[in-house]
Design a protein around this nucleic acid. Sequence first.
DNA 1: CATCATTGTCGACGCGCGTCGACGAATTAT
DNA 2: ATAATTCGTCGACGCGCGTCGACAATGATG
Lengths: 329, 329
Amino acid sequence: MPTRADVAKLAGVSESTVSYVLSGKRPISEATKKRVQAAIDQAGYKSNYAAAALAGGAPRMVTMMISNLFTTPSSRINGALVDGIVDGVREAGFHSVIWPVSNDDDADVNLLIKSNFSGGVILMNVKENDQRVHLLNRERVPFVVLGRTDVGFKYNYVDRDFENVDRIALSKLKELGHTHIGVLVSDTPIPQHLMTEASQLKMKLKAIDIPNSEAGGEELASIFKKEYRSITGIVSLLDAATIGFVNSAKEFGLSIPKDLSIIGVNMLESQAESTHPTISTVAFDAYEMAKSCGKMMVESIEAGKNNKKKRTELWVGDFVDRGSATHIQ
Amino acid sequence: MPTRADVAKLAGVSESTVSYVLSGKRPISEATKKRVQAAIDQAGYKSNYAAAALAGGAPRMVTMMISNLFTTPSSRINGALVDGIVDGVREAGFHSVIWPVSNDDDADVNLLIKSNFSGGVILMNVKENDQRVHLLNRERVPFVVLGRTDVGFKYNYVDRDFENVDRIALSKLKELGHTHIGVLVSDTPIPQHLMTEASQLKMKLKAIDIPNSEAGGEELASIFKKEYRSITGIVSLLDAATIGFVNSAKEFGLSIPKDLSIIGVNMLESQAESTHPTISTVAFDAYEMAKSCGKMMVESIEAGKNNKKKRTELWVGDFVDRGSATHIQ
DNA sequence: CATCATTGTCGACGCGCGTCGACGAATTAT
DNA sequence: ATAATTCGTCGACGCGCGTCGACAATGATG
C-alpha cells in the first residue's frame, strides 16, 4: 500500500504535484508528468478511496439501490437491468455497487452518500410515490430512476414508453380484427393510457388479475375457456405468468394463436423465445435501456450538483411477430 | 452532517470521549454515556464511514464479489443466495454490498479492500482454481467462499454436501429398481464422487451434456426416446434445463415418471414445484445456506486477521418425493 | 499512611488525499 | 526596458475519526 508520499519521493517532486498529475486540475509539464507516472507504475500506487472520499474528492462510483430484486418473479428482467447498468457505468469510467436495502431505511442511504463514497444513486424498483425519491431529492444527491413514479417534481428517469408500447400492441390486435381484449395484470388496474387508447380504437378491455408466476399463468389457462369466452386477444403486462400461460394453453384445449392471440409487452427476447409457441412481443431490450440509464447517471454526476437540468428517456420498441398473434378466425 | 466535534460540544465533553462512548473501548461513566448519547440523538449524528475507514476503524461491511450472476440460467438460485447473505450479514450487525466485477480484475478488489472499506469478501461463483481465492489469501483479506474450488490450501467455505446429496439421489433410484442412469450436466463431466458411488451401487451412469436452459431441456426431451433407450432414471445437476425437460416431456411421448424417473439435486423448492409434473428433489435451501455463509463471514472478520482457524460447512438435505420418480415398470 | 492499580477523561496526532495560496521562472503586453 | 500575465511547482492545511499517552481522582493493598 504505497501512498502519495512514496510516489512523490520516488519521482523527486512534491505530493501535491503527484495529485495534480493524477487529477489534471493544474498544468504540469510533460517531463514531470512522465516522471510521476513512472514512479506510480513502479510503486504500484493506487489511490486510497476512503482518503479521497474524506478529502472531498469526486467519487467515481454509482450505487444501485435495490430491495428484494432477486427473488421476484421477474428476476430475469431484473438481472438484465443490473448488468446493463453495470456496463453502462463502467463504459463511462465509473464503478458501481449494489446496495441491498431492507425497506426504505434512510440510515442506509446516509452511510454511502454522506460519507461521500458514492457520487449518485440509481433507484430501481420504485413504488407509487416512493419515499426514497423524496429523500434523495431533499439531500441533493444526484440520482436517476430506472422506472417512474409520481412524486410531484421533476427528476431524471429512464423508462419504457408504455403509452406507445401499449398502443403498438393494441393497434396490432385491432389490425388483426380483435376487439375483445384481456389485459394480464398483477395486483394493479389497467393503466389509464391503455383504457383511453382502447376507447379510441373502439376496443373492449377486461382486466385479468393473476399472480405473476408461471403457476399463475397455468392457473389462468386452465379456466380460460370457461371464464373468458368472448376474449380473442390478450395484451400481457406480465412476463413469468405469460410464459406459464402460453406453455400450458394447449394442455387445456386452448390453441394459440388459433383460439387466442396474445402479445407480450413486458418480456425479454430470451423469454419470448423460450416458450411453445413463442410469443409475439413489442420488443423490450432491458439491457440496453439500463445501460443508457447508467450513462445518464454518470453524466448527471459530472454535470455537478448545481446543474438543475432533468433528463428523461423513454424507450419504445417494434412489434416482433413470433406467431402468437394472428387474424381473428 | 454533524461531526464528532459537534456532539462533543453539545455534551460538554472531549471528542475522544464521544469516540469511546461509541466504541466502548474504554470505560466511561454511566452519567457521561447518557449525556453523550442524548447529544448524538439531538444532533442526529452519524459516523462518517470514509473517515472511520481512513482512521483504521474496523469496517462493519461485507462485500459480495460477483460476476455475471444475474443473467445466468440459474438466476433464481443466485437470487436466493444473494438474499440469504444479505439477511445473514444484517442479522450479525453488518452491512453488505454487491460488487460486480468484470472478470478477475485485481484492481477492483483493491479499491474496496485496501481502502479499508470492507472487512471481508464473500466469493460466489468460483471456478476451478479460482485466481480470486489466491489473491484474497495473499492479501490477507478475510473471505468466505460460497461454493468450493481446489486451490491447494485451506479456506473458509460453505457449500452443499454434494457427495451425500448425490448419494441420496442415486440410492433412491437404486431402491426403485433403476440401474441405467443418465446424469444431466452442462459443460462438465460427471463428478468423480458420483462415479464411485455408482460403481459401489452397481449402477451405470451416462453423462448427458446439454445447455442449462429451458430450451436445452426441451431439446433433450425431443430426442430422448431415440437417443437414450436404455436409461430409466435421471439425476439432474441442472435446474433450468430440468424444468424445460420435464415440462415438455409429455409433448414428445415421454411420460414422467412412468417411462422415466427423474430426481433433481440442484433445484429450489419453488422451481421443483413449478412444473408439470412436479419434480422430486434432494432438498436444497439455498437461502438458509447463504444466510449461514453470511454469518460465518462476519464471525471470521470479528475473529481478527491473526485467527488462522478455517471453517467449513456442508449442507445436505432430504429426499423430497414430488412424484417424478417411481419404481421401475 | 504510603504505594500501587484502576477508572474516567482529555489533548494530540495520524490516516491519505484534495485543494488553496504563494512564488520563482518564463512568457507576453505595454 | 518594465509591468502584467501565465506556467509549473511547492508547502500547508483540513476532511472526520481511531487511538495512544498523560493525568487527576478514586479505590485497593501493604
